[in-house]
């Protein structure tokens, strides 16, 4: 056993080093004085200052957040509906096509999704801007939401809903008062997933955005194509920091909930 765990320890250490060292380097060099990203020239936060004065970046960030909030919210509503239909909807016309359309965008290369949506928007003469990016992001992220939510719905005990109906709830009350609170964690993580996917997306946004709306990834991509720059390092650091804080907070909250639940169960078992 000891021999094996020695091997495991080494592979885990190397693996996580591989995963995290690039980001650590990125963060460290965002505080570099020099314009050269690879040579350390002393500590400085000047790139953060410059970043905050860069109107183009700030505008792009604002557009990105706007798009992400709108598209993830619509996607959560639509995705939850779709999940409910898939798991509880029974048979209906074109069910196979429907579930196919839910799963297909998950494996569709982004370039194809982007291209096809762009051709659609041009075909119907829709001006490209924030609106078209929101439509595009909603379409692919609602599929992710519906996968997350339906995996929760599958394990959900249907008799709870039936009990609510038996006790006099209308179907929509049963959904609101019983189903929704129970699947809420899945819905929330679906929203978070949709939000991050939207924040992160470069390819689809590039196809569907117009000159009036540039998102942050598009901005970063065009800057990065020219090479590394400390300003992008600073921006990346900020984004990494936000995500890290968010993920750790979320995991601490769920962990505390689990601990509390366990304690309650133990207390209940004693009485």
């Amino acid at each position: 056993m000891t021999r094996m765990s020695w091997f495991n320890a080494v592979s885990l250490t190397l693996g996580f080093a591989f995963l995290y060292i690039p980001m650590v380097i990125l963060v460290i060099f965002s505080f570099n004085e020099s314009k050269l990203v690879t040579v350390w020239a002393g500590f400085s936060t000047k790139w953060y200052g410059e970043l905050l004065q860069n109107e183009a970046f700030l505008n792009a960030a604002w557009v990105t957040v706007k798009v992400a909030v709108m598209s993830s919210t619509i996607a959560t509503v639509l995705g939850t509906m779709a999940a409910y239909v898939l798991v509880r909807g029974g048979r209906f016309m074109g069910r196979t096509l429907f579930s196919g359309m839910i799963y297909a965008p998950l494996v569709m290369p982004e370039v194809i999704t982007g291209l096809s949506l762009l051709l659609l928007f041009i075909g119907i003469g829709l001006d490209r801007g924030v609106m078209t990016i929101v439509l595009a992001h909603t379409t692919f992220s609602m599929c992710y939401v519906s996968v997350v939510v339906s995996s929760r719905l599958v394990t959900f005990d249907k008799s709870l809903e039936e009990a609510a109906l038996d006790l006099g709830c209308s179907p929509s009350e049963a959904f609101r008062l019983v189903t929704l609170p129970i699947i809420a964690p899945a819905v929330i993580s679906g929203w978070l997933l949709a939000f991050t996917l939207s924040l992160d997306d470069l390819v689809i946004a590039s196809f569907t955005s117009g000159p009036s709306a540039t998102t942050l990834p598009i901005k970063i991509f065009s800057a990065v194509r020219l090479g590394v720059s400390p300003e992008i390092n600073a921006l990346s650091t900020l984004m990494i920091a936000i995500v890290t804080v968010g993920v750790i907070t979320a995991s601490l909250v769920t962990k505390r909930q689990m601990v509390r639940q366990k304690r309650d169960e133990q207390a209940a078992a004693r009485t």
Binding site: P22, I220, S236, I240, T244, V247
Partner: peptide
Amino acid sequence: MLVILPFWTSFLIRVYAWMG
């Protein structure tokens, strides 16, 4: 969580990190 965490950070940034 350590495995999933990079997944939540921007794909673009993770690729960019390797450029340097």
